[in-house]
Design a protein around this nucleic acid. Sequence first.
DNA 1: ATAAGTGCATGTCGAAGACA
DNA 2: TGTCTTCGACATGCACTTAT
Length: 246
Amino acid sequence: MVLALALTVRQRIPYGNKEKVTIVGLCTAPYVMARIGLLDRYRCTLHWENLASFREEMPALLVTNNLFEIDGNRITCSGGTAPIDMMLELIREHFDQDTMMAVAEQFVHERARPSDESQKMAEHVLTSRQSPKLAEAIQIMQNHIDDPLSTNEVAEIADVSLRQLERLFKKYKNTTPQRYYLFLRLQQARRLLLQTSLSVLQVTIATGFSSQSHFTKCYRDLFHHTPGSERKNMKITQKKSHNETV
DNA sequence: ATAAGTGCATGTCGAAGACA
DNA sequence: TGTCTTCGACATGCACTTAT
């Protein structure tokens, strides 16, 4: 049922208040949804190729670069393989983590990506166009999440001076290389916390932190809650969804 | 054709602050 | 507290334009 939802653009007209309406839009379908006002005050996303023009055309909408957005009964998705991730997230919400993983396995889908994961390919393509050296540096960082390199080493491998690398990050990412690197590691940490049963200590090590307290501090600074509470919340949400479906 | 001016990307250095 | 990171200031090189 969820798969059917994920693969169609669906709009059901409610009869009074009796019927629960779920509206799903894929790829460029949010254009239609936005034009008839279905996305007013809702977060939404669409395929990266259409993001810029969509934002320009609909400046009042809350458009994100995420893989998919589930905001109340408005569900939008960027397209490509993202509907599978969206479907898995809905399965996780309505059933549990194990069922979600079993379905993912059926689809030979190695890793269910969370909704807030950006459309990485789009970012990578855009960054490559803006600055190949910057894209290379980011790739190097992504390849060294568990054993972080110094900014100097990243610059050396990318064959660019440290100062120039700093300028590129400032210009295109509006941050410093170190902060961006930290952001990548914390994003990975969050994925590990939500999608695996690794302990917080194991996640700490897997993302290149030498001290768990330092990891927790950095995590809280970015996500506004600790790794422990993040996992606790996820388990509570899963339990609730499971009880509702039973 | 050529010198001078301009803008941009890049490199070097050092001071200040942050991190582990 | 030593090391690392960031950032401002200044210098250099290159491409392009303009005036002579």
